[in-house]
Nucleic acid binder design. Sequence first.
DNA 1: AATTTTTACAAAATCGATTTAGCACAGGCA
DNA 2: TGCCTGTGCTAAATCGATTTTGTAAAAATT
Lengths: 338, 338
Amino acid sequence: MKRLTLKDVAKMAGVAPSTVSFVLNGKGKQMRIRDEVATRIMQVAEKSGYEPHRMAVNLRTGQSKTLGLIVESISGSFFASLAKTIETEAERKGYNVVYCSTENNAQKGGELIRMLGRQMVDGYLITPAPGMEKEIQQLVQQHKPVVLMDSYFPSIKTPYVLINNFDGVQQGMKHLISKGFTKIGFVMVDVKLIQIEERLRGYTTALKEHKIPVKKKYILQLQYHRQREDSLNELQAFIEANPELDAIFFSTNYLGILGLEVIARMGLKMPDDIAVLCFDDHDIFRLYPPGISVIEQPIEGIAKTAIDLLMHQLDKNSGPMKKTAVELPGKFILRGSA
Amino acid sequence: MKRLTLKDVAKMAGVAPSTVSFVLNGKGKQMRIRDEVATRIMQVAEKSGYEPHRMAVNLRTGQSKTLGLIVESISGSFFASLAKTIETEAERKGYNVVYCSTENNAQKGGELIRMLGRQMVDGYLITPAPGMEKEIQQLVQQHKPVVLMDSYFPSIKTPYVLINNFDGVQQGMKHLISKGFTKIGFVMVDVKLIQIEERLRGYTTALKEHKIPVKKKYILQLQYHRQREDSLNELQAFIEANPELDAIFFSTNYLGILGLEVIARMGLKMPDDIAVLCFDDHDIFRLYPPGISVIEQPIEGIAKTAIDLLMHQLDKNSGPMKKTAVELPGKFILRGSA
DNA sequence: AATTTTTACAAAATCGATTTAGCACAGGCA
DNA sequence: TGCCTGTGCTAAATCGATTTTGTAAAAATT
């Protein structure tokens, strides 16, 4: 039982293969195929269940109709929501998606991009990690359509979408301050990424705006590549060294989860002993008593915007882009922890 | 800057395209190409950074070197671990993977399979959902390589890998019973799937073996398609209707998470007011105080075995399979909840 | 020395589509 | 009548590889 080809359909309809191709690709009118012939071809194709051979189409047209989605971790919850939306959005535009994760391995990022290149993806959706700058730069120089999400490199001129980190942190900080908290710690990673810096800026700015002094010892920079246990200990030491802290802002959900563990270990109660606020939501935060208040990322919006930006690049006869840098507002979700 | 083709390499090396193809595909000896020529070709290909055009190769060879992974939900933690292992295992065998989720939509399952068929995947890895039986049956009849994971249909004769559900539940139940719990509830979904039935069988068998009567009212069957809130209420009603229950076994992690919410809502303390045990681990269970004891699935083992079984089918000159049904043991993880 | 066999490649067919160029035939116009 | 213009399709080139077939020159055999 062999695959049904366009040639077969042509034979069955009593016309040439090219004619079938024209009709099925909607170029019947343009090629002035009679309606009578066109409908006959359509019917034959329909009845026989003909499906074009993707690889053949790709080879001929040079388009794989496939997008590459590169994320840091495929098991993260950020990815989970992102992937779902991107997949459905892409599908509706006739594209499908292959996923790849760098798994926090800077070097692997480059390999991945090359691998996807070999597979001929038409465009890239990337959440950039520190080590990937060069590779992404190359893609852009090769005029491959690229959209960055969640972060970006100022040196690379390609569209990006992300949450307004500064504003998001501000929202959270304003809430904490309005609740009367003044000794607020800030926990971050030491990675040099725009979004991290923006979050820190949100923290310091909010404090300054309310005339609260910014104390350096209230800011903890955890190293990125580190044993889980080491990070926990460092975090605990930080809290013990500043017993007057009445609230902590965790700048990523990974840090927040570490925080929960340390706080439980130390026997502290949220929010009375210490209030907790976290950037970026996570399943756990909904459930973990008393519920962790967070700044939620507009993931669906990010995904949709990213696809739009990418499609715009893929569509050659669309003009130059108006907006290439999109910042979407985050949403403060109040739960029990702050 | 166009893509480098095999023809270009041939020209640069001063030979015919076919010669290059032979050499690069390791058929140089067989086609008696002189070592001198062969090494020259290799060097040229290497230096120029030539990469064969995947689509062209696919079209000619009829192999896409791509596997389709179909799961229920791409955001589930089961998928997350599964995908990672499968991806790396597949990559090492020269395959890549496209993911698809049915998102608990029976009808979508069929569409997905067809979509992947269009994309010409060489083989399928599927975690079967209730509505997919017919579609999978078709694939098998078309002699497409298929491996099922996590569950299977007795009517379909194709390899599958899953945890030994019966034994897993037994392990957990034996622990509960040894701790002195006797009034043990069992919460399950009403889906007719092998693995669910096996888990129930593990529950009842364990009770019988210890001469503990099996009471029907201690078994709750939650409906599958249901509003989250409704399920929560039904679960709460179940616990309230059986106040003598001293432990509950949740047969899936989704149910377990619902259980945590209800238990928190009712103000019960684990494990004193009620002990909790759950089938299938989840991030939350590690963190949620006092830690939820679980039966952990050997996900990595499942993934590796599945790939092996699939590769065996893809490799035509390998004989018939010895083992087509694999059951891997689960692992009981003791935490604070039971 | 003539013929066969082997060596070492090159040429051409092929996979299944898309797309450009071409080709009969009909009608319009001078 | 002869030339031009549309109409309605077909033939053939093409995408970039793999694989079958072909073919000169060298070596071996008779």
